[in-house]
């Protein structure tokens, strides 16, 4: 009989696009970087439009020390941005999730909340920013309200849609074990909706972050958006690009964090 290791291994069934794409992505990133390096060092693009990677790195070092226009260090800008986005995001989670759940389980609540949410949801936050500024001024309140509104709609929609993930059998089973209506909502519907709520949180924090940077560009004395805008006024392209990279990296870290939270809180997602 043939040795086991001599038998050729074959692949099982597969669907299109299956397998890891990490290596290909890594090659893409390296290739873009090499292209950037070549374009700047070989003089294909003027330094004003695209500085060399080294200059971006130097901009990052001096920004860390606060050696840029405005005199505030990068960590200070970052801290302000994070405080704004997270305070607004948590306020939105605390209010939008209950509203979404209520919209899912109550005809009355759905009737009340559906028109205002559906009306403002597709509006770009920058379109109503001027109104927010007129109402609340240009200080922190206005920014937090703007980000809050940007986070609220996707969260409420996700919680409302999540209510539909509960099966009628789960609800009936709970009732026939003596659960009250409130217990069914809290112990059956909310956990069943949790996977969708967490997806909504991922989307909402992304919305919040994009809105934040835009809001800081309009009115702020600190924050990543303000740092980038200020640098552009002085034609400091290196700081602009460095700022953009920082904003992108932070957004990516948010998403990694949310995915981690997701795998911890809803390990059953997609499996039951």
């Amino acid at each position: 009989m043939a040795n086991k290791s001599e038998v050729k291994t074959v692949k099982g069934y597969s669907i299109p696009g299956e397998g890891s794409s990490v290596l290909i992505s890594a090659i893409t990133v390296v290739a873009l970087f090499v292209l950037w390096w070549a374009a700047t060092h070989l003089g294909w693009i003027k330094d004003l439009f695209l500085p060399t990677p080294e200059r971006i790195y130097n901009a990052f070092i001096s920004a860390m020390k606060g050696d840029i226009q405005g005199g505030k260090a990068l960590p200070e800008h970052l801290t302000w941005s994070l405080i704004r986005v997270f305070s607004a995001f948590f306020l939105a989670v605390l209010t939008a999730v209950p509203v979404g759940i209520l919209m899912g389980v109550s005809r009355t609540m759905r009737g009340i909340f559906d028109p205002p949410i559906e009306f403002y949801r597709p509006l770009p936050p920058l379109a109503y920013l001027p109104l927010i500024v007129i109402w609340f001024g240009i200080d922190e309140t206005a920014k937090i309200i703007l980000i809050y509104l940007a986070c609220f709609a996707p969260l409420a929609m996700a919680a409302r849609a999540g209510v539909k993930s509960v099966t009628i059998e789960q609800i009936n089973a709970a009732y026939s074990m003596g659960a009250s209506k409130a217990q069914v909502v809290w112990h059956v519907i909310v956990p069943a909706a949790l996977p969708e709520i967490l997806t909504g949180m991922r989307i909402a924090i992304g919305f919040g972050w994009t809105t934040l940077v835009a809001a800081e560009m309009v009115a702020a004395t600190e924050g990543l958006g303000q740092m980038v805008l200020n640098a552009s006024n002085f034609l400091r392209t290196d700081i602009v690009i460095m700022g953009i990279i920082v904003i992108g990296v932070v957004a990516y870290l948010f998403d990694l964090l949310m995915r981690k939270v997701e795998s911890m809180l809803v390990p059953w997602k997609g499996r039951a």
Partner: peptide, 29 residues
Amino acid sequence: GAERGVVFQKHALMPWLSVVENVEFGLKM
């Protein structure tokens, strides 16, 4: 009501709870 227990064909257990927590559910309520 709890004096009439029901077993369903499927989709009735709660995947966010362990096996024993599912069995405890009604008592907890």
